[in-house]
Design a protein around this nucleic acid. Structure first.
Lengths: 263, 263
DNA sequence: CGGTATTTTGAGTATCGTCAAGGCCAGTGG
DNA sequence: CCACTGGCCTTGACGATACTCAAAATACCG
């Protein structure tokens, strides 16, 4: 039994450091102030449930730090990952929308939360905030499609390669997922093998084998089960069936970044 | 070489029957009129390209009839389906967004189109239209996640079953995809085996085999390659790994609808 | 140090990808 | 009218991959 969902520890009296999130700084001063006034900061630990599907969760959340899993619970009890949320991502349906998935902490997490009523009130008066939400949605949609492409790879190795690539590109500068280690990229994988198997549409044993297959071929090094280093980014992109995750450009940029690590 | 993208045949002088789309009828009178004033209706035939990725397509489209494919072109030339568009769906990025996929006609298609500039002008003055777009996005996001779950099924049979189920639930009342045939649901599949293979992350031979495997076990009947009848909806849902596509409720409703077909 | 969860490895079988051939259908041109 | 063509779908055979069940090894936590 998981630790249940009785909310994280709050720091209610404290004003939220909303300015930590660069996206929000594009908003006009008054909107930022209004948001700050109704903001609560919460912390959750890995494994905690933050919001449940189809339940009127009644708050909007913005991730300040850490990684969240979105997962659907299927009628037969199994669960499927449908995406990850990272710093700056917004979740919780605005307006009448329901969420059809649970949100759980994959790592320890810090959130900014807003009660829905007041939030929507601000939203109605601020086209900029509205725009921000729209862009957030578009971004999520793009990411969901990236997942689709990764999942559409016929081989497990390819899907895993795609996943690692996604971690490299979409999650650079995020949390402590990516870091440079000499001439390689070091990745902290925020998911267990079981979760990865669910995400990638396979079994945990196959995930494990795929990891070691990639390692044997010199594409990656496995330092710990959840810590790997990318040794051959190009070969990895090749394995994933092209580099079409986000931009091919961002991959190239990434490779350049490695070549001169400390500047 | 496909037929290229020089637009479909237009009916410019004609006013568009926007009221055919029920979603739009929720909009206030004046907004509907404004939209009608800048609307163009276009027709495309199966196979035509309607909009290209990363090209400022400069128009917003609403599907009036038919089915569109959204597909990403990968750097190595292969193409991957990332979703379908049906009656009422809106596409083309508003504001600064780029589309990262092509849009092509899967069947013959009728569209309403709006040039981006005037459309955004109306959008800025109408929160209702804005809301409509938002809901459309949320809906697409949900659908993308449904695809993810289907794709996450380890076996091809299961993925195909999930796809057929999706057709039954999400696409009822759409075009001529679904119809009732006695005690079964008849499906017109709007995709070739090749497209289906891309979508489901496998090869066309495997898709073919999966179809006939389901037929051998009595779950479906194959009338023509692209026309099948669902014989055992429950077993199909089981094969797909639960019925968690959209609502379990909608499946149940579907089964009831079959049991008394003509009322 | 022991206990639990996670990860890895192994062996056997089912499934799938791959290559190759053949069938079906619609359209074309003799 | 018929042979020819090309696109699409099906079928077969075989090797590669992945799923399954089982057990061992490792990491994690108190």
């Amino acid at each position: 039994m998981q630790r249940s969902l009785k909310g994280g520890s709050r720091s209610p009296g404290q004003t939220c450091a909303l300015s930590d999130l660069s996206d929000l700084n594009t908003l006009p001063e008054d909107v930022r102030e209004a948001l700050k006034a109704i903001c609560r900061q919460k912390s959750y630990e890995a494994g905690q449930t933050i919001a449940e599907a189809d339940r009127p969760s009644d708050f909007i959340g913005i991730v300040r730090d850490g990684i969240l899993r979105m997962e659907k619970t299927l009628s037969d009890g199994r669960r499927h990952l449908v995406g990850l949320l990272v710093e700056g991502d917004i979740f919780g349906h605005v307006f009448d929308g329901e969420m059809h998935f649970n949100v759980e902490a994959a790592t320890s997490v810090e959130l900014f939360t807003f009660r829905r009523g007041p939030f929507e009130e601000i939203l109605l008066r601020s086209p900029d905030l509205d725009r921000l939400l729209l862009l957030n949605l578009l971004n999520e949609l793009d990411r969901a499609r990236d997942w689709m492409i990764i999942l559409a790879n016929p081989k497990v190795r390819g899907r895993l390669a795609g996943f690692l690539l996604l971690l490299c590109t979409r999650f650079q500068n995020v949390d402590h997922v990516t870091s440079i280690a000499g001439d390689a990229i070091r990745l902290r994988i925020p998911l267990s093998r079981r979760d990865l198997a669910n995400l990638l549409g396979t079994r945990l044993e196959s995930v494990s084998r795929a990891f070691h297959a990639l390692a044997n071929d010199g594409l990656i090094d496995i330092l710990q089960p959840r810590v790997v280093e990318i040794r051959d980014l190009e070969a990895l992109a090749d394995e994933a069936g092209g580099s079409e995750l986000g931009d091919p450009a961002s991959l190239h940029q990434l490779m350049l970044a490695i070549q001169k690590p400390t500047d």
